[in-house]
Design a binder for these strands. Structure first.
Lengths: 338, 338
DNA sequence: GATTTCATTGCATTCGTTTGAATGGATTTA
DNA sequence: TAAATCCATTCAAACGAATGCAATGAAATC
């Protein structure tokens, strides 16, 4: 299975390599009939210009890389779809790699992509690992990188963020406004900056409404339903249940709801639950789950547009886009008479 | 930001280009000290061998492509993770593209990847579109392709399948064995071969247990929760409800359950529901959803291994792997006293 | 009929790397 | 001491395509 090359086509027609090249690139002078003859013959011979050879002499590859921590959850999957949409329309190819929440694999992915000469990268880092040093070195070298989602505002690079603190504040305040007095936050991971931002928002709302220390708790839980289940299990065992749970994400919230229901607690009549990073499931479960919707499509599109700007213009004005969300209040957090 | 090339390193040290190349490739005789000196200097100069140039002279790229119809659902996301795992361990890079359930985009993706000289492809086709002609042409040309999931057994290429018919049969038979007399199948799409296989399995079980024509229906529904909701809405309007629903997937099942519950029907007491292609949510919803679990990890691993075999050996023995599933019976389909 | 003009085509170099063959110098052998 | 052997290194030709410049040849101009 040998690939037909430009030479084969040239030899077949007794023309020079450059004529074939010109026929394909349609830029330089070439007679119409010649071009058509060449294109026709090339088609018949199954000739496809070798993009690797093409790229060799050029600085751009028209490939961009996207590195995400995972795409088992809808969030990043949707973001990626939006990114792809923008880039495909501009003639770029999008190469996706996932890091499995592992900083080492993440660095490996990023290096693989850079070494393969993608024109730029969109990175959603797993955690604030020391990979940042490497990334920032690249950024300082004018390598086009846009950070997404899980990045601190202080990082000197283009980035697209969701204002976790703000929306965490709103979610918490919503619970307070419903009259829930004792609120536990099932938080994500300590080294995850979005988790920390959400904790800050949680605290801010508590402070504003003067919730006493004994009436809230922040429990490091994780990102999986299983972890939500386990934490609730513990709390039930310790007879330490609040009026409401504010959870790191919908999966944890659903795990929590399940365990509560299994133990005879009614949601929201006995205990309210609210999630974060809304999933499609929020509307389907019983009770319907309140959650904060993050704009996945806008995030992907913004990141892609920022990257294209960086790739195509030489002026490298760092830009930070902070996106707004939506607090979707559903049954799981609406106070009713007991 | 100009890339340092092999020439720069060679000039810096007053050695020849080939020495630098040999130092990096560590195949030919080169003095230990020279190699170390070169490697050290290269490292300092930030030299990275240009993989594009490297690939030019070689037939292999150590890239493979994966094209899936979508990865918003967990199914393909999990499959991809498994594929990546196998390939990463063998030194290959995995490029993922998604087709948004669109055959034209799928063909575009496949061509993009082939033109970019991936060493092989794993394709999960969206539908049985005429793209198959193109793919089979490539297969006949000894281009390594492995099909996955949504492919007919008759296709003459390596493939990894799930025995939809068999497990559809089991799911249906389970409902029958629970004593449900009237069973409606909310099917996927007519042009989706997995949907058709499942319909066949459904029919087989009905035949075996002699279910009369008036006691079943096959309703083309789709793949989304919304579509499940709409169909139930119609059926309620028409006062045409069965004892049990067997659904194309968990999402449709959950949509159906939601609508049923909203209208005062109890699941499973009044109407039973069973899903397919189990998701993580199956265990979290109320009632817990019965479903058929497909072995995503095995599917990914098998496909990856088949492809590697094809890429690395010249002998192109087509192979078909048919995977087994698991019928997980949960509350939503267990008959109880009314 | 000689010269200019123009469109078309071909030649040769370039991109960054690998690699078979050749070189040159040191060491061993006859 | 000359020849053979060896090693480390260098030379030069690929790989496939793009492209500036030169060459061709026919038509247009003088």
């Amino acid at each position: 299975m040998k690939r037909t090359t430009i030479k084969d086509v040239a030899r077949e027609l007794n023309v020079s390599i450059s004529s074939v090249s010109r026929a394909f690139n349609d830029k330089y002078d070439i007679r119409k009939e010649t071009r058509e003859l060449i294109l026709r013959t090339a088609e018949e011979m199954g000739y496809i210009p070798n993009p690797i050879a093409k790229k060799l002499g050029q600085s751009k590859t028209f490939n961009v890389g996207v590195v995400v921590p995972e795409f088992v959850n809808e969030f990043y999957a949707e973001v990626i779809i939006a990114i792809q949409e923008v880039f495909l329309s501009k003639g770029y190819q999008v190469l996706v790699m996932q890091s499995d929440e592992n900083p080492d694999l993440e660095l490996k992915n990023v290096k693989t992509l850079i070494h393969n000469m993608v024109d730029g990268l969109i990175i959603a880092p797993t955690t604030e690992s020391n990979n940042m040093d490497y990334y920032l070195k690249q950024v300082k070298n004018d390598y086009p990188i846009v950070f997404m989602s899980r990045v601190e505002q202080s990082v000197p690079a283009s980035k697209v963020l969701f204002n976790n603190q703000k929306w965490s504040f709103f979610a918490t305040e919503h619970l307070i406004s419903q009259g829930y007095k004792k609120i536990y936050h099932l938080a994500g991971h300590k080294n995850l900056c979005v988790s920390n931002e959400r904790i800050k928002g949680f605290r801010k709302a508590l402070n504003k409404h003067k919730i006493a220390k004994e009436n809230y708790k922040i429990i490091e839980t994780g990102l999986l339903a299983k972890e939500g289940i386990e934490v609730i299990e513990d709390l039930i065992y310790q007879h330490d249940l609040p009026d409401a749970f504010y959870c790191e994400n919908d999966l944890v919230a659903m795990g929590a709801i399940k365990k509560l229901k299994d133990n005879g607690y009614r949601v929201p009549e006995d205990i309210a639950v609210i999630g974060f990073t809304e999933t499609r499931m929020a509307e389907l479960v019983t009770p319907q789950l309140s959650s904060v919707k993050q704009p996945t499509f806008e995030m992907g599109k913004s990141a892609a547009k920022l990257l294209i700007k960086q790739i195509e213009n030489d002026s490298f004005e760092q830009e930070t886009i902070v996106l707004n969300g939506e607090l979707n209040i559903r049954k799981s957090s609406i106070r009713s008479e007991k």
